[in-house]
């Protein structure tokens, strides 16, 4: 792609989300979402490859009706109540429909099934943008809508956690696994949304922090399916050793960063007496822990079945770990001791 065009689309990608974030009016929020969608589609289809084109088409076909539904609900709401404010929606019908279409835009269960397919067609850096930055704007809109319709929120959240874990179980493609992990994390955010929106925001931030290095590592080594993971040891042995920690942090195992959101969310639910909900979410988190565990097992404990005849490449290129990766790996593993600080900053 022409660098000028690319920079224009990147700017639009940023500004679309920023317009949504800074608007209190549904019309402006919708415009921001549309700018965002229109900007990412050429970026998705940047590689001239049938799968990229397929992904771009699918993404457009999904985002367009979702945005149309959002606009429809906003207009219905304006018609009923006479105002366009986002945080003053008061009637059930537009709220539920808007929640579902925003969930559709983010790819949450039960309207999630496009996300793994689309992500499968992308290169990993675009996939990273799709699973982090692209979720920011709809996520923020849901955040502004909180405390409105609790049943929809809880259903969307628990189903996302369940489906995200379930769907990832038999996958061999890393991009699809990451898509399902994204669905799961979105589920955790939505479950706690109405009880404590600050926790939701914190979960989102930590999810971005943790998923960033995973995408970057896989991108750096071009690891698109599970059976290429053992080769990591010959390229970058340090990272190969760190990958289980990163993945288990995504899964939410105790001494790692990923434990913070799960801990605080379950604690909050127990405080509120929602033991059933807490149990369901905690147990269904185990599904996703299973496939993270499988990924870490394959990447660091097994050897590549094909024997290596040449010198391992990490000896030839000693400084192959980029700086960005180093700086993101550390916070995505070691933030747990800072929990009180995060707590006092955000909550």
């Amino acid at each position: 792609m022409n660098p000028i065009t690319l920079s224009m689309f990147t700017t639009a990608l940023l500004s679309g989300t920023l317009i949504t974030l800074s608007s209190t009016n549904w019309l402006m929020a919708w415009m921001g979402l549309e700018i965002n969608t229109m900007a990412i589609i050429p970026i998705i289809a940047r590689k001239h490859h049938p799968r990229a084109t397929e992904a771009a088409t699918k993404y457009f076909l999904i985002q367009a009706p979702a945005a149309a539904t959002i606009l429809f609900c906003a207009i219905t709401n304006a018609w009923m109540t006479g105002q366009w404010e986002i945080n003053q929606m008061s009637t059930d019908l537009p709220i539920i429909l808007i929640l579902i279409s925003l969930a559709f835009k983010m790819g949450m269960a039960p309207v999630h099934s496009w996300l793994p397919d689309v992500l499968q067609g992308l290169d990993l850096m675009t996939g990273l943008v799709l699973s982090t930055w692209q979720k920011l704007a709809p996520f923020y809109l849901i955040l502004q809508l909180h405390s409105t319709h609790s049943l929809t929120l809880i259903l969307l959240g628990t189903m996302s956690i369940l489906v995200g874990g379930w769907g990832g179980l038999n996958q061999t493609q890393t991009r699809k696994i990451l898509a399902y992990s994204s669905i799961t994390h979105m589920g955790w955010m939505l479950v706690i949304l109405q009880f404590s929106p600050e926790l939701t925001l914190m979960t989102f931030t930590l999810y971005v922090t943790m998923t960033l290095p995973v995408f970057m590592i896989l991108h750096q080594n071009n690891t698109l399916s599970i059976n290429k993971l053992p080769i990591l040891a010959t390229h970058t042995p340090t990272i190969s050793a760190l990958i289980p920690l990163l993945l288990l942090s995504l899964g939410g195992l105790p001494p790692l960063t990923g434990f913070i959101p799960k801990w605080l969310i379950i604690q909050k639910m127990s405080h509120l007496g929602l033991f059933g909900l807490a149990t369901i979410t905690a147990l269904s988190g185990l599904f996703s822990l299973y496939f993270y565990l499988r990924l870490s097992y394959i990447s660091s404990i097994t050897m590549s079945p094909s024997s290596n005849l040449t010198t391992a490449t990490w000896r030839l290129t000693p400084n192959s770990i980029p700086l960005g990766l180093k700086t993101t790996i550390v916070p995505s593993m070691m933030l747990l001791p800072l929990t009180p600080m995060i707590n006092s900053l955000l909550l």
Partner: peptide, 11 residues
């Protein structure tokens, strides 16, 4: 937004 859509379609 309309201009961006046009450029995206052309691209």
């Amino acid at each position: 937004m309309l201009l961006l859509t046009l450029i995206a379609v052309l691209e």
